[in-house]
């Protein structure tokens, strides 16, 4: 598949737009359909597409394994830590009203960070799963 010219060209054109669309879905989630889960999955799909066309090792140089693993845990930590931020500012756990002087603005801020945490975790998990399966396959072939 790596020598297919059509796939390579189309992939090069499409992948930036897929990644951009993921970011759009993430930040526009308040106003249109979308949010952290979708954004994470679409972003991971873009990277997986890249790995399918250009080979796994190239995708691994773009986003190395330790970064993926850090994303995996970092997203959950961001989410949970954000709950504690509400705690420290005098509210309940995951209470967004206290995050800003204006409660509505606090809510928006809370939703933004929480969605970001979700997106990071989902993207990390999808990428990690794909890397795992793909690298198993490659090492099998070498035998």
């Amino acid at each position: 598949m790596q020598s297919d010219l059509v796939l390579r060209v189309i992939g090069k054109i499409l992948i930036p737009f897929i990644l951009l669309f993921a970011v759009y879905v993430q930040f526009h989630g308040d106003f249109g359909p979308g949010g952290g889960f979708q954004a994470g999955v679409i972003f991971a799909t873009g990277i997986i597409f890249y790995a399918l066309i250009f080979g796994l090792h190239k995708a691994r140089t773009v986003i190395p394994d330790n970064v993926v693993e850090a994303m995996l845990a970092g997203g959950v930590l961001l989410y949970a830590g954000f709950g504690i931020a509400g705690f420290l500012l005098g509210g309940n756990y995951l209470d967004y009203f206290v995050l800003s002087k204006d409660p509505i603005h606090g809510q928006h801020r809370g939703i933004f960070w929480v969605e970001l945490g979700v997106a990071i975790t989902v993207c990390g998990v999808m990428l990690k799963i794909y890397y795992m399966f793909a690298s198993r396959g490659n090492s099998e072939e070498q035998h």
């Binding site: 949010g35 889960f37 999955v41 989902v122 998990v125 999808m126 799963i129």
Partner: peptide
């Protein structure tokens, strides 16, 4: 269901 789908694929 949104969350269920993502958990489902995991």
């Amino acid at each position: 269901i949104l969350t269920a789908i993502v958990v489902g694929v995991a």
